[in-house]
Amino acid sequence: MTYQPGERVALVHTTDPHTLLRPGDEGTVRRYDPDLRIVDVDWDSGSRLAMVLDAGDRIRRIAGKDVSDADWRRVLDALRAAGATAGRAAAQWWAQDAVGGRARGSVAGTARQVLTAVDDGDPAVLDGLPAADRYSVAEDRDRYAEAAPDGAPAWDGLTAGRCDQTRWAWCDGFDAAVTDEVARQCRVVLSPTGDDRDLSHLHPKQARIGGPGVFAGDWAWTPNAEGEMRILVGFIGTLVDTWNGWAVFTCTRQVAEAIVADQHAARDRYRQHLATEGVTGTDQDDLVDESMARMRFDGDVIEVDESRVHGDPEAVQRIAPSADGRYIVMGWAWTWIPVHPYDCDRIAGDIPGPVDPAPAAES
């Protein structure tokens, strides 16, 4: 027979003639040495007399208060919630050093690395996050006293197995909350929307025909002040086709206007670059027109003039909206790709929520 710390026992007999303990006195097992068969007991009377089983001392286990499965689940839920509270606090301290006010270097780079690791379950990164110690029993009693709901059985009446369950519930809550809060903090750092919304459903790997995505030209990557390659603006749309690996998407009038404005901004940036190179006047105009299309709205129609780009006076497209007011801007012509929203400094368009998968057809 073995004994576990936390088990309740009652004295049956002791060979110690000097103790004040009497048969029936109760206590809690502190430690058991299976080799020497010695049970260290914290007796309720205050005595610390150990039971030497091979010398004739005898104790019996005391059955704990019977707790229904539902009540015990309620206890574990409370421990899990307490662990989650501690986990969120630990993650917030981590964030201050890693991606917050005390961080050094590129916090955006760290945030992207951590979010990718969370998505992929990469232990090389996740092992560096705060984690609960699942094998330390030192704080079990205090955690139980703080978190157990009213009506929960007394700690001293729990079996060793249930003591372990309380620790694992607390640790489960802690670790899950750390991951969630770390991801939230990283999303705040990276989010082009300025909040902590989870945009993982817009990851390029999730792009499907008929589904939402964030799109940009494969030419759109630009180094920022820290030398990181970023996309100034991504465009919300619905993927409707692909060609040669490039995306074709529909978008709202709002997004179409943003695409036209982005083209104007790109032309202006190129003008500024040419000016720094000493190219001005008509030479500058010619180089800009030969490199980038002119775009403008003519009523509800987008006019895209690439005549100078291709040296073809007929290379002018007029893009009208569909019956539901959506546009396909230079689909099957420009090399659009789905991009990760966290790679964008700004996103044009209303960001959709996750789309529930269609139910499987009944056979």
Rank of each mutant, 00 (worst) to 15 (best):
V182W: 03
R73W: 06
D343H: 13
L190Q: 01
A98P: 00
E306Q: 14
D175G: 02
G278P: 06
R31H: 14
A84T: 05
A82W: 03
P341C: 13
A90K: 05
M51C: 11
G157R: 01
E306P: 01
P354F: 10
E26S: 14
I302G: 00
A124D: 14
E139V: 09
D44M: 06
D180K: 07
D156H: 11
A220D: 15
V301M: 07
A361W: 06
M51V: 13
G311Y: 01
I62P: 02
M330F: 02
L79T: 06
V12K: 12
D16Y: 07
T110E: 15
R80W: 06
A275N: 08
T15S: 13
L129F: 08
R61L: 11
P192C: 10
R88E: 14
R267L: 03
E306G: 11
Q96H: 10
Q92W: 05
S363E: 13
P341F: 04
V233W: 01
W155T: 08
C163D: 04
A160Y: 03
R48T: 14
D268G: 05
V29Q: 02
A361D: 08
P204C: 12
D35F: 06
G151W: 07
A261W: 03
D195M: 07
N224R: 06
Y135W: 12
V188W: 08
L49W: 02
V288T: 12
Q113V: 10
G213M: 10
F235C: 07
H310Y: 15
D119R: 14
C163L: 14
N244L: 10
T242G: 09
T222C: 13
D196G: 12
W72P: 04
T28G: 03
R58F: 04
M1A: 12
P5Q: 04
R58I: 10
A91V: 09
G234C: 09
D25E: 12
T250P: 05
T335P: 03
A147P: 08
L129W: 05
H264G: 06
H18A: 15
A216Y: 01
S136V: 12
P192I: 02
D66R: 14
D25C: 06
L20R: 14
G311R: 02
D305K: 06
R167V: 11
H340Y: 11
A154L: 12
A315E: 08
A95D: 09
D343Y: 03
P212T: 06
T159V: 08
V248D: 06
A216R: 04
V240K: 11
A183Q: 03
A84Y: 04
V41N: 00
D164E: 15
R318P: 11
D312N: 15
S191A: 09
M1S: 12
D44Q: 11
G64A: 09
V137L: 13
D343A: 15
E306T: 07
R73T: 08
G46M: 04
S47G: 05
Q113S: 13
G27I: 01
S322A: 14
A50Y: 00
S291I: 04
G157P: 01
L287Y: 02
A50V: 01
T14Y: 00
V52I: 08
Y3Q: 01
A86S: 11
D356K: 13
V52G: 02
R60S: 12
S45M: 04
M295T: 14
G210A: 11
A108K: 14
G299S: 07
V255I: 09
T276S: 14
A148E: 07
P130I: 09
R73Y: 07
W221F: 13
S191Q: 05
Y135E: 15
M229D: 15
L21H: 05
Q263H: 12
Q272Y: 04
S47E: 11
E290V: 03
